[in-house]
Design a protein around this nucleic acid. Structure first.
Lengths: 236, 236
DNA sequence: CGATTAAAGATTGTCAACAATCTTTGTCGG
DNA sequence: CCGACAAAGATTGTTGACAATCTTTAATCG
C-alpha cells in the first residue's frame, strides 16, 4: 500500500521529476492518458477499489480524480452502480464537428491580423511533424499531431475559454479515433490532408481560410462517420 | 451531525421531493446557487471543515462537490492552502463576450430554418418575463430572466456541447452581475434592451439577426465593462 | 531595530473502515 | 417451466481520524 511518487518505485507514474503534486492530480493525468490513448476502451467499466489497488492509493484521491474526469465528459457514473468510460455516439461526432467548425473559424478570426512569423513557422513545423508520424506509420502519434496542428490557432487566440472548449473537443476526438484504431485498425489522417489547411492559414484571405475550414471539417466528419458505420459495433 | 435530506429537517436544502440524490450532488447544487446569486462573494474563502459543519455532512462528499465546481471554473484551489470563489477579471469579461458572440451566432444558424411556433412563443414569453422582473425592480430575477432569454436559442440548437458551453459562460456572467449588484447596487438590464433581439430573432433575415447579435454583444460588453471601472475594486 | 529561524495554527490531503444502494443469483412455489 | 421473492455479491457513498503542507506569528540573534 505504498505511495507511487516517492522514489518512483511503483513504476506506474511516468517519470515525475521529484516535484510534489497532489495524488488526485497525478491520478487524473494517468487516467486521462489511458482513456485518450484507448488503453481504457469506451464503455469499459472503471472500478474504484480495483484501480486504487493497482495504483497504490486510497479510494479518496481516486474518487476526486474520477470526479474531475466525469466533469470533463470522459467518464460516466451512475450512483451506487458503477462508472464507465464514456461511449461516443454518431450524434456526438456530429455535434463535435459542428462545434469545431464554429470555434475554429472564430479562432482564425481572432488571430488573423496578428499572425506572427512565430505562428507561421510553428504551423509549418507541426504539419511536418504530422507527416513524419504518418511516414513512420505511427497512427497514435499521427492523431496527436493532427490535433496539435489544429490546436495552434486556439493557442494563439488569447482566449482561455476558447482554448478550454477546444481542449474538451480535442479529448473526445482523440479518444474516439484512438479507440477505433485499436479496435478496428483504422488508419490515421492522410499525408497531404492538411496542406491546404496550412496554405490558406498562411495566405492573405481570411474568407478563403474560413471556406477551407468548412470544407476541411465537412470532409473530416464524412471520413469519421464512414469508418464508424464500416465497423458495426456502434453505440446508441 | 444529522443529515439534511431525510425529513427535510435542516431546512438547508430546497424542497427535495423525497427522492434520493447523492449528497455531493446536492451540495454542489447548493454551493453553485450560493455562488451564482452572489451570496458567496467572488474571492471569498471557502473552508471545507466550516462548510461541512454548516451543512451537516462530512468533508468527503463536500470535497467532491467542490472538485466539480473547480472544474466548472467557479472555485479555485491551491494545494494545502485554501479554496476561494473565483474572481472574474476584465479580461475574463472580454473573453466571455467574444465567445458569446461566436456561439450565439452559431446557435441561431443552427435553429434558423426550423424555428417552430413553440420557439417563437417561448421567446416572446421570456422577454415578457424579463420585463416583468424589471418592473418589479427584482434585479436578481432580471439577471436570470435575461440569461434565460438568451438560453432559448441554445436549448433549441440540439447540440449538447454547445449548450454546455453556454451554461458555463452563463454561470460566470450571472455570478459577475449578481455580485456587482450586491456590492455596488448596480441595476440590471433595461426594459427595452431585448426588443430588437426578439424582433430580429423572429424575423426573416438570418444575416440581420447576426448583425443585431454582434451589436447587442458589443453594447453589453461596453455596459458591463463600464460599471466595472466605475467601481474600483476590480481584480488582477 | 531588522532579519533569520523556529514554533504554532490553519487548511487541505490521505487513509481505512463502515453504510447504503443496486444488481445478480438462487430458491421456492405455482 | 416460469415468476416472485429473498439472499448474496459487487460497487459506490459516507464518515471520522490522522498526515502533509502552507501561512502566520513569535522569538532569537546579529
Amino acid at each position: 500500500m505504498l505511495l507511487l511518487i516517492e522514489g518512483n518505485g511503483g513504476g506506474l507514474v511516468s517519470s515525475s521529476p521529484l516535484k510534489r503534486e497532489t495524488m488526485s492530480v497525478q491520478i487524473a493525468a494517468i487516467l486521462r492518458r489511458d482513456i485518450l490513448t484507448g488503453e481504457l476502451s469506451p464503455n469499459a467499466q472503471v472500478v474504484e477499489s480495483a484501480l486504487a489497488l493497482r495504483l497504490g492509493v486510497s479510494r479518496g484521491p481516486l474518487r476526486e480524480a474520477m470526479r474531475q474526469l466525469i466533469e470533463e465528459g470522459l467518464l460516466i457514473t451512475v450512483p451506487y452502480t458503477g462508472t464507465r468510460v464514456v461511449d461516443i455516439s454518431v450524434r456526438d461526432i456530429n455535434e463535435i464537428y459542428a462545434m469545431r467548425t464554429c470555434i475554429e473559424i472564430f479562432a482564425f478570426e481572432q488571430i488573423w491580423t496578428r499572425r506572427s512569423e512565430d505562428f507561421k513557422a510553428e504551423l509549418i513545423k507541426r504539419n511536418q511533424a504530422l507527416k513524419h508520424a504518418i511516414d513512420q506509420a505511427d497512427h497514435v502519434a499521427a492523431i496527436e499531431a493532427e490535433l496539435d496542428l489544429h490546436g495552434l490557432a486556439y493557442e494563439h487566440a488569447n482566449n482561455r475559454i476558447l482554448l478550454n472548449t477546444w481542449t474538451g473537443l480535442r479529448g473526445h476526438l482523440q479518444m474516439y479515433w484512438a479507440s477505433h484504431h485499436r479496435a478496428h485498425g483504422t488508419t490515421g489522417p492522410k499525408r497531404e490532408s492538411h496542406d491546404d489547411y496550412v496554405r490558406f492559414a498562411l495566405g492573405e484571405s481570411l474568407t478563403a481560410m474560413q471556406d477551407e475550414l468548412r470544407d476541411h471539417m465537412r470532409r473530416g466528419l464524412e471520413t469519421t462517420i464512414t469508418f464508424v458505420e464500416t465497423c458495426s459495433g456502434a453505440s446508441a
